[in-house]
Design a protein around this nucleic acid. Structure first.
Ligand SMILES: [Zn+2]
Ligand SMILES: [Zn+2]
Ligand SMILES: [Zn+2]
Ligand SMILES: [Zn+2]
Lengths: 177, 177
DNA sequence: CTCGTTATGTTATTTTATAACATTTCAATC
DNA sequence: GATTGAAATGTTATAAAATAACATAACGAG
């Protein structure tokens, strides 16, 4: 499952500044299609659109921000005037969470596209307090340490939330200047 | 309240069932006095009362639950009729958070008394989805793993949130029965 | 096509948190 | 002990996040 690749100096998990994010989005949507097909889940136009909106935001995005963008774009098919309502977005997000296509960042009340949606995991995040970027990591050492502790105590782990906030490498350099 | 037989292994972090919680509360309030004195911070009657209410709840408690209890008990000094308002509680909680006397559980939007308030830390929690108990652990292996990862990536850690939800040893046994 | 299921629409409300400004309390200085 | 500036609390209003409850539409198996 987990590759904990040697990270030379810092910046693969934090996306490169000028990278082609459209490509990331397309890739994520493609992966989502694959997963939903495999799972027999229906990635409807609405759900797909919400997933795309979440991915387009390079930072974690709140449900109401998703809603606002959804309203601006209009529902994908029906362009019938009435703006979408909160439950529309929350239901789509719930679906995406269920199939591991997005993660919820508890400390921000916000959502972010999952970086490796194939694998079953809860997501561990490094969140920059300055630029807002959330890098998803998957560190076996962290997972193992948590698993070991729980085992020692006799606690049956269901869901793990790891959210580290601080300064990303880039913002750190900027701060020095 | 309920007396439940001894739990064989691994249950120090989860409080024993029939323990004297009043003692925990008193101890916590005492420690808070000490810390605030040392820090030159004012543990006012209101703040003290909020801390006590948080501690009295054996589970993490929401701000509005604290508020409700505060209203029921009346403000500690002034018994002037008007019920307390949300900012009163949020400000007290902010103070208590600032001095490390309580922790906020992000995944529950709730607050819990800190088990080792002397030390500077962010708190790591095992939260039972059945009984609601949140056990605060302080696992160096977890902290170290997170610190190492961040260092490798060049991320400057500010605040760490670790919240593990699942089944505590007791509820696990109960489920087996 | 028919029918049960799943998805979405719609309206209202609940829960959580903060903004903005007024008043009180406190302790230091005069 | 009065003066005063800072910190704490009171008060009112609103923002932000999430869900409840019920109605309609779309979908897919038989
Ligand atoms: Zn992920
Ligand atoms: Zn940054
Ligand atoms: Zn603590
Ligand atoms: Zn339990």
């Amino acid at each position: 499952m987990a590759h904990t690749p040697p990270i030379p100096e810092g910046s693969e998990v934090f996306e490169a500044a000028g990278h082609d994010h459209d490509h990331c989005v397309d890739h994520a949507l493609q992966a989502a299609e694959t997963i939903c097909t495999r799972e027999g889940a229906r990635l409807t136009p609405l759900r797909r659109q919400v997933l795309e909106l979440v991915w387009r935001s390079h930072e974690p995005i709140g449900a109401y921000d998703v809603l606002a963008r959804l309203q601006r774009e209009g529902a994908s098919d029906a362009e019938d005037g009435r703006p979408a309502a909160p439950p529309t977005v929350y239901r789509a997000l719930d679906f995406l969470l269920k199939y591991g296509l997005v993660h919820r960042i508890e400390s921000l009340n916000a959502y972010v596209g999952c970086a490796h949606p194939q694998e079953d995991h809860n997501g561990q995040f490094l969140i920059c307090r300055t630029c807002g970027t959330a890098a998803e990591i998957e560190d076996d050492a962290i997972s193992a340490a948590i698993r070991d502790n729980a085992k020692r105590i006799g606690f049956a782990v269901d869901r793990v939330t790891v959210e580290v906030s601080g300064l990303c490498p880039r913002c750190r350099s900027d701060a020095h200047a």
